[in-house]
């Protein structure tokens, strides 16, 4: 459990002061993947660096599992940093060290014996899928492989928390997905809490359960990913949701569906956290004598199930269609019939 209370950071430079983080309050559950999203300059990096005090807070508290990080002296802070892993956008590996030696570095810092270090490093190399690259230097690795080294290194001392600052922003989409999958995998296997900073909504959508949206150093909206996706309130949040869902269908598109569908009824299905939606359409088609035609839709998988909407054209007896509607309503999928405006 991580608690952030009234956390602020003010940067004073010669000719201006910047309130990079402004009285943030947050509580993050143990073992979850928590996302923080915001545009450039929102204060995300500053926030995550305040958690392990790479940046000293101006005011406020950071509490990790009953330990008040913000009150520790230098020595204790060093010790607790060994239990807080961190990965970076630009990996920050030591180029003079091989993959093995890079992963061993935090273990050296923690004073782990050489034999134990070797065993642990081999374990980690296996965990992050870098077998065969042990003795390569960072310069000989791809971005994705470098980030795997970064992750292995961050996990070396069995941290309770993993901080990720734009961990996938320097990677191509495919590599991003593989790194995200790795993060989910270690989150499940090791049960550690992950705090993830990003400016890409699809990263949040893919792996986070809860999300906070940052703007101008403040959290403007927060909640479960599904909730934020289905009912975005702030303009920034709406923009981020559009990043992955596209613009919501407007009245005009719906009107268009109806014009081209004089033979049946247009249904709009809404999935919010539905986990069995794939079955529902085939079930309806099997159980009832209706023909289903997919008109348009966009459904995204989130950690809490699918989210999105689907437009169907249902052709059949009105009676049968009503029965089908009743059947669908029994599930968690919401359905409405789109009428002539």
């Amino acid at each position: 459990m991580i608690k952030i209370e009234q956390l602020s950071k003010v940067f004073k430079t010669a000719n201006q002061t910047v309130q990079a983080v402004d009285q943030m309050n947050l509580s993050i559950n143990k073992g979850e993947i928590f996302g923080v999203i915001g545009y450039s300059g929102a204060g995300k990096s500053t926030f995550i660096r305040l958690i392990n005090r790479l940046e000293e807070p101006s005011t406020g508290k950071v509490i990790i599992e009953d330990q008040e990080i913000t009150r520790l002296n230098k020595k204790d802070l060093r010790l607790s940093r060994q239990e807080i892993g961190m990965i970076f956008q630009h990996f920050n590996l030591l180029w003079s060290r091989t993959v093995r030696e890079n992963i061993a570095f935090p273990l050296e810092i923690a004073g782990v014996s050489k034999a134990e270090r070797n065993a642990r490093v081999s374990e980690l190399i296996d965990l992050v899928g870098l077998t065969g690259k042990e003795n390569a230097y960072p310069a000989q690795l791809s971005g994705g492989q470098k980030q795997r080294v970064g992750i292995a290194r961050a996990l070396a001392n069995n941290p309770k928390v993993l901080l990720c600052d734009e961990a996938t922003s320097a990677l191509d989409p495919e590599t991003t997905d593989s790194i995200l999958a790795l993060l989910v995998d270690i989150n499940e296997k090791l049960g550690l809490t992950i705090i993830l900073i990003t400016h890409e909504m699809h990263v949040i959508q893919k792996i986070c359960r809860n999300v906070a949206v940052m703007e101008d150093g403040r959290i403007v909206e927060q909640g479960s990913v599904l909730n934020v996706f289905s009912h975005p309130k702030q303009p920034v949040t709406k923009k981020f949701v559009e990043q992955v869902m596209g613009k919501p269908e407007d009245e005009e598109t719906e009107e268009l569906f109806i014009q081209h569908s004089n033979s049946g009824q247009v249904l709009k299905l809404q999935f919010i956290g539905e986990t069995t939606h794939q079955a529902i359409i085939s079930q309806v088609a099997k159980k009832f004598d209706v023909e289903l035609n997919i008109l348009q839709g966009s459904v995204k998988q989130t950690q809490a199930g699918a989210y999105g909407s689907l437009y169907l054209l249902a052709i059949g007896e009105p009676e049968t269609i009503n029965q089908a509607l009743a059947f669908i309503r029994e599930t968690s999928v919401e359905v409405e019939v789109i009428q002539h405006g």
Binding site: L54, R81, M86, F88, H90, L94, F105, P106, I109
Partner: peptide, 18 residues
């Protein structure tokens, strides 16, 4: 030297001598 590497070492809890 890349500042990020020094930062990474700090984040790992390294002493200044290290």
């Amino acid at each position: 030297i890349d500042k990020g590497v020094i930062e990474a070492a700090k984040a790992m809890g390294a002493k200044t001598s290290t």
